[in-house]
């Protein structure tokens, strides 16, 4: 449970100019759904600039997010797969961005825990990096409930 909204928020992009652009693209679905306001996007970019790319959790996998009071409205998640990798500060290449938002409660934790169980499986992570269709991505996340 918790990840069902992901299906509507899967995006494929061939190439981006910068990591900032990558973050903006990954936040777009959340903006459209009213999960976040524009300031949240800026907060994420600020977050990277001050704290480094710590949300690049695995090689090529990033989890863009910021503090909820910086413009998050409700729980949301999106998945963006880049065809060509983009470099984040600290020389960290990123191919998949899973942007998340929360209203400040712990309501998003079940969703995170599901994302976590996917990211713990090397095989699924590989599949995710190479996914080319919405179907592929959503099946990676939905077939893997523990």
């Amino acid at each position: 449970m918790g990840l069902e909204m992901l299906k509507e928020n899967i995006v494929f992009v061939d190439e981006v100019d910068s990591w900032e652009e990558a973050i903006k693209i990954s936040c777009e679905p959340l903006l459209n759904n009213g999960c976040i306001s524009l300031s949240y996007v800026d907060a994420i970019i600020e977050n990277v600039k001050t704290n480094g790319s710590y949300f690049v959790l695995l090689p090529e996998i990033a989890l863009p997010h910021a503090r909820h009071e910086h413009g998050a409205i409700k729980k949301g998640v999106s998945c963006t797969v880049l065809n060509k990798r983009v470099l984040f500060p600290g020389d960290k290449p990123v191919k998949v961005l899973i942007a998340i938002s929360s209203d400040g409660d712990d309501g998003h934790l079940d969703m995170l825990s599901e994302i976590g169980s996917v990211l713990m499986e090397d095989e699924l992570v590989e599949k995710l990096k190479n996914a080319t269709t919405v179907q592929q991505v959503s099946s990676i996340f939905s077939n893997n409930k523990f």
Binding site: Y54, F55, A66, L119
Partner: peptide, 10 residues
Amino acid sequence: CDAGMGSSAL
């Protein structure tokens, strides 16, 4: 982590 809701939660 900084935000306390994403990376650290995961």
